[in-house]
Amino acid sequence: MKQLFSFKNLKYSACVVALFGVIQLLISLNIFDDYYQITIATICINIILAVSLNLIAGFTGQFSLGHAGFMSIGAYACALITLNINSNYSFFLGIFVGAILSALLGFVIGIPTLRLKGDYLAIATLGMAEIIKIIAQNLEFTGGAAGLSDIPQYTNWVWLFFFTAGTVVVIKNFINSSHGRACVSIREDEIASEVMGINTTKYKVLAFVIGAFFAGIAGALYSTYFYVINPGLFGFLKSVDILVIVVIGGMGSIRGSIIASILLAIVSTYLQDFPEIRMILYSLILVVVMLAREFIKTKKINLDILNIKKYIKTNGAR
């Protein structure tokens, strides 16, 4: 109890509430109109995806290229439920079922594949996501290649904020728990942590399942905000997009993932004004950012903003 109401927690809670209040105010004053709200929705969904992938890739060190697959499970489950069950609770039921199914799939897939390491795990998870996509493309009740449309728009700014903040809080707390530290130890040295008595398989699968659970939520929110889903959305490139956010923000930095989600969304809205060369600019930015990060890191310039915490740690320890 004492810990729960610590000064730090109260401070963070106050910040979160204040942020919510400010944006809510801007929306109700119509300074944040529909267009900004869509951008905010994209940001929120990307934050959930990035933070949950960060738990798998950044904190536990398991390189997954199939996050979009989990997202699609949540999206399809929620869309099917909201389309077929006409009740006030179908939205919550949809999110819940989507997240649980996605977590279940994470469990089933995680147990065999998490034996693999590094790039092999990446390709196995990539294959898994592709298989999910192909199955969705060919099943009758998922609407085939056309996917599902006219999904009622239940998701609004309040729910987006609620689920985004919830995801961040839960994952942050998980990482700071003993389970989370076990996960980090696996990233640092799998053999050493096994020697220390940590059941590495259990924690790897646990991180995978939690990550999949929140990816499912993100998918559910996506489907009930953007009206339409189809299998093509959840392909390899979507997984890559999420990974880009995680890497730009910094592996193992939740704050980084949040900031990177916001920055990339802003960059994307800027790029809308250059329709002809939009993707060229985006890819150039991607390459330049990666090179610049490395340049700054190797030149030991104290400007690695996104990785600041890790930076302080490594340099402070010296």
Binding site: F63, V244, S283, M290, R293
Partner: peptide
């Protein structure tokens, strides 16, 4: 390696 991978995707 993941940094290099993202760069490769950018290229």
């Amino acid at each position: 390696r993941i940094t290099a991978l993202i760069t490769a995707i950018g290229v």
